[in-house]
Amino acid sequence: MEFNKIRELVDRYWDGASTLEEEEELRSFFSMEHPHLPADLKEAQALFGYFAAEADIPMPVFPEIGTLTGQTPATGKTVVRTMVWHHWMKYAAVLLMAIGIGYGARQFTSRHDGVLAERSIAADTYNDPKEAFAATQKALALLSRNLNKGTAQVQKLSYFNEATDKIKAN
């Protein structure tokens, strides 16, 4: 008798026409052992057994709600307190940068002074233009003399070349 009623409910279930109460009745029925269950109800038994097992998923430990609501901006920001000496790396970086800039500036100044000194030596060799002219003439004369010495040697070479050409021609 009971199986007939269950069969009717199962048919309604498969048709998608059962109510929540009827489905609850089916869940309750199939949660118990039925050694003489008719064969046509066994597929529903398998399915409802699966539903019961799935509803029984073990629950994890959820974090405190306070931590969740405290994470949002609405409840205010969390203030992280740090001591002054916790920033030693910042101070060290600033100090290193200052040392670097100071060293660079010093190097630049000394190099700049050297360049200026060189320029001043090159620019102020002679104050009087006549003296400068005389010195330039002297330097050019020296250059000319040395050049002439060279041409004399080259002249000898040309004689040698001419002699070689004559021999080749014969």
Binding site: W14, F30, L37, A39, K42, E43, A44, Q45, A46, L47, F48, G49
Partner: peptide
Amino acid sequence: VREQLQKLQVYG
């Protein structure tokens, strides 16, 4: 689901 249960012959 019913068709599959019948096809695979899944019985409780």
